[in-house]
Amino acid sequence: MSFDQWMLAFHVLSAFSLVAGMILFWVLIVVGRRIDTPGDTLRLGPVAKVGNATVGLGLGGTIIFGVWLAFSYGHYDIWDGWILAALVLWFIGSGTGRKTGEAFNEAPRKALELEEAGQTGPNAELLALNRTSRGVLLHALTSVVVLLIIIDMIWKPGA
């Protein structure tokens, strides 16, 4: 197996890591819609950390190995339209992903406040934060962007 084949394998594995993390967050979003207590909200924290790690690994790996391949692989160049499109989409997705994280971090922050204040029962404001429509919209937007990157990588328009 050549060095470029290893790089391609790591590039694709990174894409799987990224999408796995995004799917994990979709599951947490669906589960979170029924959560209105600080305990149940904070319970999902460690699982979310796994999602953060896989998304981080995926984002870093796709860009590092992807750019390496664009320079190293003889048939493609970094300025090819489909590679430039993927780079632009990657930056857009990273931005919307970061904003998604900020939107969903408000619920555990509130849950911690409530727990420290000794309020462990159901809380309407916490439920609303767990159901944040802004967060859902941003995660949906990020998912569409990632889907477009996958389509771009498979169809390679103009290559």
């Binding site: 894409a15 799987f16 999408v19 796995a20 993390g21 995004m22 799917i23 994990l24 599951v27 460690p46 699982v47 796994v50 999602g51 896989t54 996958i150 389509i151 498979i154």
Partner: peptide, 23 residues
């Protein structure tokens, strides 16, 4: 695309399921 998307969903479910069970 269908093959890759399915595989990504499969792996995503395994990561989510294993994380929740492990933690």
């Amino acid at each position: 695309f269908v093959h890759v998307l399915g595989a990504m969903i499969l792996v995503g479910g395994l990561v989510t399921g294993a994380s929740a069970l492990a933690l």
